[in-house]
Design a protein around this nucleic acid. Structure first.
Length: 547
RNA sequence: GGCCCGUUCGUCUAGGGGUUAGGACGCAUCCCUUUCACGGAUGAAACACGGGUUCGAUUCCCGUACGGGCUACCA
């Protein structure tokens, strides 16, 4: 009884994954909520035209989190329909990047899955089949215009001062296509193997509305849209066709992608309608863009060069042979990248800012994604890196240090490495800081900071160093430890009636060459007796006493 | 040019008709320390503009400005 009443009222079935709440009396009548209990199927669909951009990584991350959060699936689909822009290593770069960050897909070209293949170039036949459906229903048509003819159209429209220079309902009647050619002529051309494209028959006037999970309702008039090419003359589909067909076949529930796709979303909605797939059309969420740190515009490779920080996850080599920096090689930790990226455009609504993947799975939501683009602030990324680096267990840091030292051809045994880690832990942002900032532990200073010497190398400091040196010589090897040395240090200072601040900079500069650094007693312990004595002796010899 | 999207400290952002407009990064000062770093404390720093609606608008509406995206047989 209920059923018949409902069908009589022609109430549309509710899409399975959403609640639709009707609010009578108001114009904004639909509020759509994501039902988080329902598993989503989402996809990341990069095109393998080069190194994966960090913005793409964030898109992948948001998709991944949503899938994990709802117990759904995260698919990776390679959108390689532009054969002229293929880059051989790009696919591997994508896998490596996702793997590095720990956000691997559930279905992909490499793992396979129930909807394989996951590479669009391998799905050509499928698109041909579906586009024929559109041709048959009148939603798409053949066009034979050459590049010159297309340019001529554009020039004519410019001359006529028409606002939108488009191949559309207003202009298609002047071109060479199924509308202006007879059926027989079209067939002859097709049979003759003449190059053609298949275009979408964009309705002359129709209001296209769709709901974006981040931006709300968006309305565009079809008269401002054009007859987009669906099938290219090389037999490959364009993004627009392939993306809609694949998302349908792969049962994608949410399309989460960058804002640069917003203008073509109405076309996609119209395609779903033309195919008769409205009821299962995915929900859209268009993410705010990652912007350049200074001024304006989308984050680009040029910014990376200009600011000296990476915008790619992994290092790569450009066709010109130039090494382009990657976050991984620059010393950024995956945890830090995830945290940093997640907070670019999303926030939890409270003061928490440390999020690992598990925390994100627990708190992430599309509703809390911002609309405005986010500038890329590398300082914040560095802060996250420092945070996560310091949080690592000492054993891991020791391993990191030893690996780093090896690249410098320096070796340090485990106990020495552990001491260095303890000494440097609070002063590092990147793993390489451990050895770059602690070079003085391995190499005696070759020069001394002139400013520090000018200020600290006084006769009394020299006298102190001489007597401290004598004291050090008496310390038995077994007692060469930071606390013993510190005790001796203070004792010597006291005996000479000196102030500690008057004398320490001289000791430091003789040991490290610099005026600032970690605790000196600890440095002497790590250095060991002989090098310590040698360095002080050398400084006393080399540095001339002031006045 | 056309279409679409956006606008709270320098940056990431919270908030929302009546708030001392909150936090974080960065910056500055102070404390700690042999110095630097870490840590702690404090501080400077924002509602783009103009109209409405309202007792009251940073918050709602409309414009303007500014910024961004798209405008390919690229994705």
């Amino acid at each position: 009884m209920y059923t018949s009443q409902i069908s009589f009222l022609r109430i549309k079935p509710i899409p399975p994954s959403f609640f639709v709440i009707l609010q009578p009396q108001t114009n904004a009548s639909f509020l759509i909520y994501l039902d988080m209990n329902k598993p989503v199927r989402v996809r990341f669909a990069p095109s393998p035209t080069g190194a994966l951009h960090i913005g793409g990584v964030r898109t992948a991350l948001f998709n991944y989190i949503l899938a994990r959060q709802t117990g759904g699936q995260f698919l990776l689909r390679i959108e390689d329909t532009d054969q002229t822009r293929q880059v051989a290593w790009a696919e591997q770069y994508i896998v490596d990047s996702l793997q590095w960050l720990g956000i691997m897909p559930d279905e992909s070209p490499w793992q396979g899955g129930p909807h394989a293949p996951y590479r669009q170039s391998e799905r050509k036949a499928i698109y041909h089949q579906y586009v024929q459906q559109l041709v048959a229903s009148g939603h798409a048509y053949y066009a034979f215009d050459t590049e010159e003819e297309l340019n001529a159209l554009r020039e004519r429209l410019v001359a006529a001062k028409v606002d939108n220079l488009q191949y559309n309902a207003a202009t298609r009647g002047t071109m060479k296509n199924s509308f202006t050619l007879t059926e027989a002529e079209v067939k002859t051309r097709l049979d003759a193997g003449e190059p053609y494209v298949i275009r979408f028959n964009m309705p002359r006037k129709e209001e296209v509305r769709f709901h974006d999970l981040i931006r709300g309702w968006i309305m565009v008039h079809s008269s401002t849209l054009d007859d987009k090419v669906l099938m290219k003359s090389d037999g490959m589909p364009t993004y627009h066709l392939a993306n809609v067909v694949d998302d349908y076949l792969m049962q994608i529930t949410h399309v989460i992608r960058g804002e640069e796709w917003l203008p073509s979303a109405p076309l996609h909605v119209l395609l779903y309608k033309a195919f008769g797939w409205e009821q299962v059309m995915p929900q859209f969420a268009h993410l705010p863009l990652l912007l350049r740190p200074d001024g304006n515009g989308k984050l680009s490779k040029r910014d990376a060069d200009a600011h000296g920080f990476p915008i790619f996850p992994l290092q790569w080599t450009s066709p010109e042979g130039e090494q382009v920096a990657g976050f991984r090689e620059a010393g950024y930790l995956p945890e830090a990248m995830i945290n940093f990226l997640a907070l670019l455009g999303w926030n939890p609504g409270n003061d928490q800012e440390i999020f690992d993947l598990d925390a994100l799975k627990a708190t992430f939501s599309l509703e809390r994604i911002n609309k405005a683009g986010a500038k890329f602030d590398i300082k914040k990324a560095q802060w996250f890196n420092q945070h996560y680096l310091r949080q690592k267990p000492d054993e891991q840091l020791v391993a990191l240090l030893q690996a780093g030292l090896q690249t410098q051809n320096i070796s340090a045994d485990a106990s020495k490495a552990a001491k260095i880690v303890a000494l440097m832990k609070d002063r590092v942002t990147f793993p390489h800081d451990f050895w770059r900032e602690a070079g003085f532990l391995f190499e005696a200073p070759t020069q001394y900071d002139a400013q520090v010497i000018a200020k600290s190398w006084t006769p009394e400091a020299v006298a102190f160093l001489e007597s401290f040196l004598n004291g050090l010589k008496q310390v038995p090897a077994a007692e060469w430890q930071a606390d013993t040395l510190k005790h001796l240090l203070h004792e010597t200072i006291e005996k000479q009636g000196l102030k500690i601040g008057k004398v320490m900079p001289a000791l430091r500069v003789s040991l490290t060459g610099a005026g600032a650094g970690p605790d000196l007693a600890a440095i002497m312990e790590i250095l060991g007796s002989e090098p310590t004595l040698a360095r002080i002796g050398q400084a006393l010899e080399k540095i001339a006493v002031k006045n």
